[in-house]
Design a protein around this nucleic acid. Structure first.
Lengths: 130, 130
DNA sequence: ATATAAAATAAGAATTGTTATCATTTTTGG
DNA sequence: CCAAAAATGATAACAATTCTTATTTTATAT
C-alpha cells in the first residue's frame, strides 16, 4: 500500500470525526477538505483499509440477503471460500439480548450474529491440497 | 395476507429446499415450477413472509455499510427510528467465537453482532409524545 | 537527480441487488 | 356472484458499489 494524500484524509476524517459513518456521509465531509476526491477513491480506500485491519467495515459480511425458513433463534456462519451459509446454535451467546439491553437501556427487537471464516469442508480440502 | 399460488410455491421451495438461499438462487429454482413468476413477486413475498415471521431475512439489517475506526472488539446497534449506530461492548457475548468454533469445527476469522430496535433517545421521545 | 515500474487517482459508465409503479388479474367476504 | 382488497407480471427506477480507462503520483534503483 503506497501513500496517498487522499487515503490519509479519508483515514483522518474517519478517525477524528463521527463514528460509524456510511460512505455517502463520509463523502460529503471529505469534499470540504478534498473537493476533487472521487467516490470510487473513497470506496477503494475504505475497502483497502478494512482489508488491512486499519478500520472496520460493518455490514452483514455479504452483499445480498439470504432467506431462512427456520425462524427459531439461531445465528449464521458464511464460509469465505465456498460461500455456504451454516446455522450456529444460539447457545453460543446466552442472554445476549438481555445483557445488551441492561448495558444500554435500549429496546432490542432483533439481532443476529454473523460469523465468517472457513467451514470444516473447506479446511479439510485446504489441508489435503498441501 | 390473501392466498396466492405464487407465495405458496415460494414458501414451499424455501421450506423444502436448500437452506439460506439468496433471492437470485431461489428465483432460478422457482422458474421451473412457476415459469412466469416475476422477480418483483419473489422479493415482495419474501419481505412479506419475513415481516410476518414466517421466514427470516438474514442481512446486516441495513442497506449500506458503515465504517468504524475502532478496531477493538465490539458490536453494534442500529436504531430503527433515528438510524444512528451505537457501539455495544463485547462482554455481552463472552467467548462467543471459542464456543462457536467448538460446536462447529470451523475456523472463525471474523464476527459481528448487529442489534436493532429503539435507542434510549428515541424511546424517550416516543414516550413524551404520548 | 532521473528513469521507470507499480500504485493510486478522477470521472463516469456499468453492475448488482432491490424496490416502486401501474395496468391487469386473482382472491375473498357479503 | 359482485365489489373491494390484495396480488401479480413487466419493467422502470433506484441506491450502493465496483469497474474501466486514461492520467498522475509514489517508490525504487540506478
Amino acid at each position: 500500500m503506497n501513500y496517498s494524500r487522499q487515503r490519509e484524509v479519508i483515514l483522518q476524517t474517519l478517525q477524528s470525526n463521527v463514528v460509524h459513518p456510511t460512505a455517502e456521509y463520509l463523502y460529503a465531509i471529505l469534499k470540504e477538505k478534498e473537493p476533487n476526491i472521487s467516490l470510487a477513491t473513497l470506496y477503494r480506500n475504505l475497502n483497502q483499509l478494512a482489508e488491512n485491519d486499519i478500520i472496520k467495515k460493518i455490514d452483514g459480511l455479504e452483499s445480498s440477503s439470504h432467506f431462512d425458513h427456520n425462524t427459531n433463534e439461531h445465528y449464521h456462519f458464511i464460509c469465505e471460500r465456498c460461500k455456504k451459509v451454516y446455522d450456529i446454535k444460539d447457545d453460543v451467546a446466552p442472554d445476549v439480548v438481555k445483557k445488551a439491553e441492561q448495558e444500554t437501556g435500549f429496546l432490542i427487537k432483533k439481532h443476529d450474529i454473523v460469523f465468517s471464516g472457513l467451514c470444516s469442508d473447506c479446511l479439510k480440502e485446504i489441508k489435503e491440497s498441501n
